[in-house]
Amino acid sequence: MTVSEAAVPPVRRALQVGVAVALSASVVGFFAGIRPDEVPAAVALSRASPAAAGAVRPAPSYTDLRTRPARAPDPATAGVPAIEAQAFPAAPLPLPPQVLDPQPDRRAEAVALRAKLRAYDGAPPVVPHPVRQQGDLDCAACHVQGIAIGGRQLPRISHGFLTNCTQCHVPADGALPPGMASPEQVAGADGNTFVGSVGPVLGQRAWPGAPPTIPHPTHMRGECLSCHGPDGKVGMRSSHPWRISCRQCHAEGVDARPEGLPPWM
């Protein structure tokens, strides 16, 4: 089940489920079953079918859709014009394994890699490459969309577009030309005992297969594809990077005003 269903009235949802099952499982799988406007009028009448009138069959999960072959057409919808049935590929799309598989075992590695550039979870990352000291919009060339070049992933900006990049992001290896800074001065940076809060724990799932909640704040991190898109780190990538309305299914993990917060917060 996806969160999108919550937005659809129950009657339409039932209808939608019925149709989806009747037509082709993969339709729902790929288009997430939000196509009531494409349903011909005849289908609406077919709601009289005993199967639909009885217990509503649950929609298949994404996993089902990928693994189970498409079912035979439901006789209740036999009269539906063939074009819609044809309109959607019956077999699930082949998806690239390296993206499809979020590789949870590599998540810790990804989190550690991510933490290397940050003082604490939520800090603006330092820049792991030299930065031109004049002008800012150079950053935009690579980081507005994010790209992968030669095995190196350049993440897209995780927040809305802001112009003055160097306001928050400073080069990790220094702004000065190579060799100018004295090694002692650079080494002097190591005398700090601050221990930053670590990356978030995993989000909550309401039941196995449910979309997990977002376990971290989304302020300045609302552009999910920055970390979870195809150019994100292995272990953090989404299995479905072409779906861009992330918060349609993934809710923020903070569900109430936490205890112990002062009244002025």
Binding site: P215, Q248, A251, P258
Partner: peptide
């Protein structure tokens, strides 16, 4: 984009923090 589902009942200012174990103040 399809309409975004706003997280129900969450004050955005509060949602901005994830205070598992961390106490926040201004």
């Amino acid at each position: 984009t399809p309409a975004q589902a706003a997280p129900a009942g969450v004050d955005p200012a509060v949602a901005a923090r994830n205070p598992a174990g961390v106490q926040w103040n201004k």
